[in-house]
Structures are given as structure tokens and as C-alpha cells.
């Protein structure tokens, strides 16, 4: 292994002799570039974050509603009722979600989703207005399988966690715990494929529907 590594790196250096010289100073400059990064060119838009997020989320076939913190359970149950699904949910975690006291009739599972999982309820780490994107991180009680196996994914978004650009997420992640998390999943709409006749079909492998509950008190 180390022989191949050496040979490849040497070959790169040989090819780059005309380029920037490799010095320890250069290495620390590049290290610094990684540490002190700043957003580069970003698309301009005038809508406020909430309006933009909702507009973009709908554009990628997502659905949403505004709710109060105390109404999370009711909203989840109403959504499930609408689809005629039993109240059995795989449950994630988060500042909003952790405050919900689930009623007795609701079965919640704090475990990985499997191939038969119908519904997962998660809370987003943050959301991006620019593209209508949900930011999900792995961690304690935060299971990425919830994002990809259920038919229906319900995601709680705290209104205050909707940031303008993707680049606004990175500092939040960096200053949080456990960075870099094993999995950072940026989710923009339900799963889809265009592989048959270049025509979009929803529900390829991941959730067929993505419903967002925006908590706004």
C-alpha cells in the first residue's frame, strides 16, 4: 500500500514541477485555507428565508404546514390519518421533537428503519432557504436509515433554523458537537428517478412523500 502511495504522490509531484513548489510553508498555507474558509459567489434572491424555503420545497414535490410546538403530535396524527396509516412511527430526536409527549395509542420506535418501515418522524438540524433543503445529521438517536427507508418521512423544522444559504449551515455544523458527523444528509424533496425514459417517478428507493412541519410559535 505505502509503495503505491509513494509512487502516486511522487508521480504527481513530478508532473507538477512547473506548478507551485511543494514546501512546508505551502502546506501550512493550504491547511490554513481549510480552516478559514469563507463563502464564495452565492445566488442573489430577495424573498425572506421562510418564503423561499417553502417555495423551493414545494417545487421539488414536498409538502409542508405551519404548526405550533405543542401541536406536533396532532399534526403527525392528522397526516397519518389522511394516508390511512396506523400511528406507528420510527422516531428521531431534536430540540422540538424531544418535547413531544406521545399519547398511548401512538407506537414510537427508537431504532433503525427496516425494509417494511412505513413512517419516520425526524427533526432537521437546519434547513436551507436557497434550495428548499433539509439538513439531517447522524448521531445519538439520529438514524440515517429513517431518511431513506420509510415510505413517508415527516420532518420537523424549527423556523429559526432555516438559514439562507448552504454555506450558513457549515459554521453551525463546525461549532456543534461531533463534527464531522458520520452522515450529513442534505435532502431536497422525496426520492425520485428519471432512469426510465428520462421521466421523473417519485419514490425510487427512498421516501415517496416528504412532509415538513414548520414549527413557528
Amino acid at each position: 500500500m505505502s509503495e503505491a502511495r509513494l509512487e502516486i504522490l511522487n508521480n504527481i509531484r513530478k508532473s507538477l514541477t512547473a506548478g507551485e513548489p511543494k514546501t512546508s510553508q505551502r502546506t501550512s498555507e493550504l491547511r490554513a485555507r481549510l480552516k478559514y474558509t469563507a463563502p464564495q459567489i452565492q445566488p442573489g434572491f430577495t424573498d425572506d428565508n421562510l418564503t423561499r424555503f417553502c417555495e423551493k420545497h414545494v417545487a421539488v414535490h414536498g409538502t409542508y404546514e405551519f404548526i405550533k410546538l405543542v401541536d406536533i403530535e396532532a399534526a403527525v396524527l392528522k397526516y397519518l390519518q389522511g394516508l390511512d396509516i396506523d400511528p406507528q412511527i420510527h422516531l428521531g430526536a431534536g430540540p422540538c421533537l424531544d418535547q413531544v409527549k406521545w399519547s398511548e395509542g401512538v407506537f414510537t420506535y427508537k431504532k433503525s428503519a427496516d425494509k417494511n418501515t412505513r413512517v419516520a418522524v425526524s427533526e432537521a438540524f437546519a434547513a436551507v432557504a436557497e434550495t428548499g433543503t433539509l439538513v439531517m445529521c447522524s448521531g445519538s438517536d439520529l438514524l440515517p436509515s429513517h431518511n431513506f427507508l420509510p415510505d413517508d418521512h415527516i420532518v420537523i423544522v424549527d423556523c429559526d433554523r432555516i438559514v439562507r444559504y448552504q454555506e450558513d449551515v457549515w459554521p453551525l455544523l463546525r461549532t456543534g458537537d461531533h463534527f464531522p458527523q458520520r452522515a450529513i444528509n442534505l435532502i431536497t424533496g422525496p426520492s425520485k428517478t428519471g432512469d426510465i425514459e428520462q421521466t421523473i417517478q417519485y419514490g425510487a428507493h427512498g421516501p415517496r412523500r416528504l412532509h415538513v412541519l414548520i414549527v413557528k410559535d
Binding site: 423551493k56 421539488v60 431504532k111 433503525s112 434550495t131 428548499g132 433543503t133 447522524s138 448521531g139 445519538s140 438517536d141 439520529l142 438514524l143 440515517p144 436509515s145 461531533h178 464531522p180 458527523q181 458520520r182 452522515a183 450529513i184 444528509n185 442534505l186 435532502i187 431536497t188 424533496g189 422525496p190 426520492s191 425520485k192 428519471g194 427512498g206
Partner: peptide, 23 residues
């Protein structure tokens, strides 16, 4: 594909951590 953003953009760093329930 002419999309603004693909449905899933995922950033994976290493194997599961002590705090992870799966991976």
C-alpha cells in the same frame, strides 16, 4: 439534469461513531 439541487447530497465521514445507533 437541470435541477437546482439533487434530492440527496450526502457527506459521509468514516465509520459509525460511539454515539451512532447505526452505520
Amino acid at each position: 439534469t437541470g435541477q437546482e439541487f439533487s434530492a440527496y447530497t450526502s457527506i459521509y465521514s468514516g465509520p459509525r461513531r460511539p454515539e451512532d445507533g447505526e452505520g
